[in-house]
C-alpha cells in the first residue's frame, strides 16, 4: 500500500464518518420544520379523517389515538419516537399504515427516477461530448438551441404532447401509467417509458451543457496536447485523458439531479397518474395528513442526502485532488 492510496482511503472514510453524523442531523431539522409548517394548514386532522358527521367526542378520541392532540412538542415527540422504532402511524386520509404506503410509493418513484436517470445520463454525455468536439460548428449550435427550447417548455406541455403522439395516435403506450406499479418487468418498463422520458427531458439541457463545457475544457487543456504529442491514439486519449476530467464538473450536478429524480416528481406523476411519492405528498399536504407527510418528507430527504453522499464518494474516486476538508483559502 503506498502512502497516497492510504491517504485517499482515509479521506473516503473520513467523508463517510462525517456524513453519518450530518445526515441524521439534517433530517431531524427538516422533520421539525415540516411539523411546524404543517400547523399553518387549516383544518383538524380528526375531522378530515372521520368526515363531517362524526361527533366532537369521536374526533377528539381519534386525534388522541393517532397522537395528533396536545401541544406541538408532545405531538412531535410522539411521532419521532414512533418513527425511529418503525411505527410510522396511520394515514389520516387512506386509513392504512403510513409505512406501507410510503415505502410502496417510494419504490415506484425510485424506479421511475432511476429509469429517467439511466435514459438521461448517456444521452447527455453523448450529446455534450459530441458538441464539445464540434465546438462552434453548426451542429453544436443546433443542439444547444434545441435543448434550450425543450427545457423552456414546461413538463406538463411536453408530457401532454408526448401522450397525444404515443398513447393516443400511435397507441404504443397506455395513457395512464397507474398499471406501472404491477405486472411483469417489460410491461412496467413500457408503461414507465413516457413519464421517464418527460422527467429526463427536464434536466437534459443543463446536464448536456455541463458535459459540453467539461469535455471542451479537457480537450483544449495542455495535458490533452501532451497526450497527443506522446503519440497516443485518439481512442486511448479519450479513454485515459478525457473522460474522467470531462465528467468531474458534471458529477456535482448529477448528484443533485439524482436525489431530485428519485424523490418523485409531482407534475409528471400526476400527469401520467403514476402512483409515486410526489403525488402522495401533495395529497398529504392538501389534506393535512401530518403523519403521512412527515414520513414522506423524511424519506425523500434521506434519499436525496444518500444520493449526494454517493456522488461525493464518486468524486473522491474520480478526482484525486478532491478533499472535503475546510481549508483556509489564502
Amino acid at each position: 500500500m503506498t502512502t497516497t492510496s492510504v491517504e485517499r482511503r482515509t479521506a473516503l472514510l473520513g467523508l463517510l464518518g462525517k456524513r453519518v453524523v450530518q445526515i441524521p442531523v439534517v433530517l431531524l431539522v427538516v422533520s421539525i420544520l415540516t411539523f411546524w409548517l404543517l400547523q399553518v394548514v387549516p383544518g383538524n386532522p380528526g375531522r378530515n379523517a372521520l368526515g363531517q358527521y362524526a361527533t366532537a367526542a369521536q374526533v377528539t378520541a381519534w386525534n388522541h389515538d393517532n397522537g395528533v392532540d396536545g401541544s406541538l412538542v408532545t405531538q412531535y415527540l410522539h411521532w419521532i419516537g414512533g418513527f425511529f422504532v418503525g411505527d410510522w402511524g396511520q394515514s389520516l386520509v387512506y386509513s392504512t399504515p403510513v409505512r406501507e404506503l410510503v415505502l410502496e410509493r417510494l419504490g415506484n418513484s425510485l424506479l421511475l427516477g432511476l429509469y429517467a436517470f439511466v435514459i438521461m445520463v448517456p444521452v447527455a454525455i453523448a450529446l455534450g461530448s459530441a458538441q464539445a468536439y464540434r465546438e462552434g460548428k453548426r451542429s453544436d449550435r443546433a443542439i444547444t438551441v434545441g435543448l434550450l427550447s425543450l427545457s423552456a417548455i414546461p413538463e406538463f406541455v411536453v408530457g401532454v404532447v408526448l401522450l397525444l403522439v404515443f398513447a393516443v395516435w400511435l397507441r404504443v403506450v397506455p395513457v395512464q401509467s397507474a398499471a406501472g406499479a404491477s405486472g411483469d418487468f417489460f410491461d412496467r418498463l413500457r408503461v414507465m417509458t413516457l413519464p421517464a422520458v418527460v422527467l429526463a427531458l427536464g434536466y437534459l439541457a443543463v446536464l448536456t451543457r455541463m458535459v459540453r463545457s467539461g469535455t471542451s475544457e479537457a480537450i483544449t487543456s495542455q495535458f490533452h496536447r501532451t497526450a497527443v504529442i506522446k503519440g497516443l491514439s485518439s481512442a486511448t486519449i479519450v479513454r485515459r485523458h478525457v473522460i474522467r476530467n470531462a465528467l468531474v464538473p458534471t458529477l456535482s450536478v448529477l448528484g443533485i439531479y439524482l436525489g431530485t429524480l428519485l424523490g418523485g416528481s409531482v407534475i409528471v406523476e400526476t400527469l401520467f397518474s403514476y402512483p409515486g411519492l410526489g403525488a402522495l405528498m401533495v395529497t398529504a399536504a392538501d389534506r393535512k395528513d401530518v403523519l403521512l407527510l412527515e414520513s414522506g418528507v423524511m424519506i425523500t430527504g434521506a434519499v436525496s442526502l444518500l444520493a449526494l453522499l454517493f456522488t461525493d464518494i464518486c468524486f473522491v474516486l474520480m478526482d484525486p485532488r478532491i478533499r472535503f476538508n475546510a481549508r483556509e483559502t489564502n
Binding site: 487543456s221 495542455q222 495535458f223 496536447r225 501532451t226 497526450a227 497527443v228 504529442i229 506522446k230 503519440g231 497516443l232 491514439s233 485515459r240 485523458h241 474522467r244 476530467n245 468531474v248 474520480m318 478526482d319 484525486p320 485532488r321
Partner: peptide
C-alpha cells in the same frame, strides 16, 4: 505521425502542472 511522435521526439513543456493529467 503517431509513431513518429511516440518514438522520435520528446517535448518538455512550460507549465508542468498543466502538462500533466491531474487525475492520473
Amino acid at each position: 505521425l503517431r509513431a513518429f511522435r511516440a518514438r522520435k521526439i520528446g517535448v518538455v513543456y512550460q507549465e508542468p502542472a498543466r502538462a500533466l493529467n491531474p487525475t492520473m
